[in-house]
Design a protein around this nucleic acid. Sequence first.
DNA 1: GCTGTCGTTCAGCTGTCGGTCAACTTTCAA
DNA 2: TTGAAAGTTGACCGACAGCTGAACGACAGC
Lengths: 247, 247
Amino acid sequence: MGARSHVKHYERVEKVRLLVVDDDPPIADLVATVARYEGWDAVTAYSGEEALRQAAEFHPDIVVLDLMLPDLDGFGVLDRLRLSGTMVPVVFLTARDGVADRIAGLTRGGDDYLVKPFAVEELMARLRTVLRRSAGPGFQRSVLQVADLTMDEDTREVRRGEKLLTLTPTEYEVLRYLMRKSPTVLTKAQILDHVWEYGFGGRSNVVELVVSRLRRKLDGPDEGADGRAPLIHTVRGVGYVVRQVAG
Amino acid sequence: MGARSHVKHYERVEKVRLLVVDDDPPIADLVATVARYEGWDAVTAYSGEEALRQAAEFHPDIVVLDLMLPDLDGFGVLDRLRLSGTMVPVVFLTARDGVADRIAGLTRGGDDYLVKPFAVEELMARLRTVLRRSAGPGFQRSVLQVADLTMDEDTREVRRGEKLLTLTPTEYEVLRYLMRKSPTVLTKAQILDHVWEYGFGGRSNVVELVVSRLRRKLDGPDEGADGRAPLIHTVRGVGYVVRQVAG
DNA sequence: GCTGTCGTTCAGCTGTCGGTCAACTTTCAA
DNA sequence: TTGAAAGTTGACCGACAGCTGAACGACAGC
């Protein structure tokens, strides 16, 4: 990745060790693959017992834990993890209309949760946040910056120069992904795969549409007067990229 | 958290050392996790004997002590702690309809108590208060401030500018949590998990409702005349945040 | 026991968001 | 030069998150 020098947050020296627990192998593998692609060490477990074994052997820094497991459920796994003395932070996965009430309480200790189906970038962002927070007090803010465009991932403030921008959730996610990968060119398929929930059927011009709306907010509605130099560039036949100069 | 300069209270240089004693591991771990999340050093003990051992080794600055313990009960632990000469402050945990009267005498020395089930923010607030008090006479007031909104955690006075506001307990807790974490955006789940008692099932629009009432009290009922610039902002799809400028 | 306060549930309303569609523009190759 | 493919954007609308009035039950103070 190399081009991450613009990401001014706490960077671990050693690889992050991630344990993914989900009884649905494709999901577990998807998450593990994305994490490895980010440079992390990732292992998977498809059951509660396997998860406990892996946790004991692998000593993960963070765990992604599905609540719905064949043998021991997510809460059981968590209890036994805690009983064994480990304080490893956990991000839970849960079905949308599943046990909504049982979700209450999951964000108390700095852990977090996500409903399925989730978007991969969303999950990775939560994992990074939880890791940063659990790294101790005085942890660094995570601020992405490209040219005069800044994004504070804690306050969700996005600024072009001094001007504060108001982005919708989707716009925010797309821009974050583009900024994080800047100055790499991303295909529309990549953006779709990372920002939208896995299993999103509609393949249309959603990405183009969101980019269009983003450009208007970033550069100003009027090209001439208020307009600044565009930051999101189209690479025809390939995709989009955020960087200062045209490419 | 870097951006906590608006919290004008006594800040320790070294980490606070907390010992949590509860025979229910999930509860003890919950408290320990939250404390670590706040940047404290925390250890747990699941029995009276273990508590005494930990106290001798770990030299905590403060102790959270459940009264109901398998071997030695909370009073016993306290007695032996005091016999060993330590004056470490203690915050007791007790069942709701437990021995409320016997507790009363215990809170003399600057100690405090809380009935189970409690809300984690409530517990952390008490711990901070007790710590501040035990830091000696002439301890600093803890006053939270965001823009012209101030909250005195000792007197529970909340002011918008000069105007004194009257908040209900729940409103006070929600606002305190929001102010303490300002300018970070908090999800409704986080607020629910931290301000309400653990084990609170009600997964509804309580948070929205409290925020709605808070806004009316903070900004004035009438948007135009008496109305001030809103301080609590909705971040659609995410949660709420308290800060001066719109986000 | 009565009364007022507080917290919660419920339900209706409203505005926002995100997606589809289609018309329009730009780019590029033949 | 011209046509097709790729990209852009305006118009539209269904779904739903969030807001709030109303009502109710629990509880504390008198």
